[in-house]
Design a protein around this nucleic acid. Structure first.
Lengths: 250, 250
DNA sequence: GAGTGGTCTAGACCACGAG
DNA sequence: TCGTGGTCTAGACCACTCG
């Protein structure tokens, strides 16, 4: 028996919903405006709340919406262009970069991937400098910078409070010659602590930028920078002046 | 009846599940190995299938798993490093780039964001060159390259079959002087056609790279390259030799 | 045809933010 | 306290792949 194909599209409901909502966002809503709540939207479109949420999740992933527990769903502003390549061949913490030193600790517990990049011997100690990046008043990224003690000795780290210690490590770095950098970008999900700092829930999608800094032919430091994927567009440019215009993805 | 609160953390179940699975993947599974199916995994962990799926989705987002309808869930290989900056200051299609020309059409229907970048007048026509990128036998990216007819006149496009037309546009581009490039990376979700080409479902997470090519002080072409976010790590480097070692995100 | 992941439903309760 | 989004359940059916 033919399944009475009432020429329904093989298109999933949530996909169609997403399209409809996306067009509504373009034409009927202003940035910052608050949408009806999920239960009402689901009723209005005649779908289960879970299905509606699947559409909202995609739109949030694309940076069109912003959802906050206890508050509601709002129309997101265009993504912010964030320069990841501000000035080539400078150490982190060089004058004029957009990062704020938060803390620095010494530890030998390092993610396996970082240990590999730094070619650490087991138990070798590193400074972990924690920095955060704020643009337009919003936190956009959190960073862990791993600097082996072999690169910057303990003695150089003399600060009393947390940010001072961080600045001390960065200052010590500046005095070495930087031979080059290396970057990679990949999709990840926010660790609990980064999520808190970025004002997101754990597991939120993030763009992870891995930067390697080279000195004396080997890796002197590695930075793991975690950017909010919903609000950020990472820019790499010859043309440092132009931030670029937002591009809608999806 | 109290659900026998066995001192459970305020941590969501799917989050805990993800951690447990992640560790199991590290220790008990080999790349390519197939996991038990979702219904069995859910039963084994004593959760609903939807909850289990939430954990699997995150692991897939992080590139740890690969799921295919009708087949199963397998352990994914480490992400492939894909050079996005292979040689600076070259036009697309320069000798040695990893893209394969697929087709070229002429059209005046262009995404609004692209029209803005190219400063197109309404109705202005462009060549849309479609290319695809394959690494290790797997499709990793699809690209639409938008070249205004003002940059490359129709007369230059003389091919008979589709790839030849694409190559003709690229060849015409090479003959202009390239003043600079500009790149941005953001998270998006795959359009239906790109998804098909990348062997993913529509809406799959992708990294969208927007490249602007400058000539005569203005934008001569714009490329929108869509990379599979689950399998790719985009690399930008001074050091073109080293592809970089995989970094686990999450 | 059997088995897989993908979609969808109709509920329930929880965690958080704001008044 | 109330309303929001976040989590979770226990089902059902569909679309796809493969033997």
């Amino acid at each position: 028996m033919g399944t009475t194909q009432l020429e329904t599209a093989p298109e999933p409901k949530y996909w169609h919903l997403k399209t409809v909502l996306s067009e509504a966002l373009d034409s009927e809503f202003a940035v910052g405006e608050i949408l009806p709540n999920e239960r009402e939207l689901a009723a209005r479109f005649g779908v289960a709340r879970a299905t509606l949420r699947q559409a909202l999740e995609q739109l949030e992933l694309e940076g069109r919406l912003q959802r906050r527990r206890g508050v509601g769903t709002t129309v997101a502003p265009p993504r912010v262009g964030v320069a990841v390549d501000p000035a080539r061949h400078t150490w982190p913490g060089a004058p004029g970069d957009d990062w704020q030193p938060v803390d620095a600790v010494e530890s030998s517990e390092v993610p396996a991937a970082v240990a590999r990049l730094l070619e650490l011997t087991p138990g070798e100690r590193v400074h972990i400098v924690h920095r955060s990046r704020v643009t337009h008043g919003q936190p956009v990224a959190a960073e862990q910078l791993y600097v082996p003690v072999r690169t910057v000795p303990d003695a150089a780290v003399t600060g009393t409070d947390a940010p001072a210690r961080a600045r001390a490590v960065l200052r010590a770095l500046q005095q070495r010659e930087l031979e080059g950098q290396d970057r990679a970008v990949e999709l990840g999900s926010a660790r609990a602590d980064d999520a808190r700092e970025l004002d997101r829930l754990p597991g939120a999608p993030v763009l992870v930028v891995t930067t390697r800094y080279f000195t004396d032919g080997r890796t002197a430091a590695v930075a793991l920078s975690t950017y909010r994927a919903d609000t950020c567009r990472l820019t790499f440019g010859d043309n440092e002046s132009e931030a670029g215009v937002p591009v809608l993805a999806g």
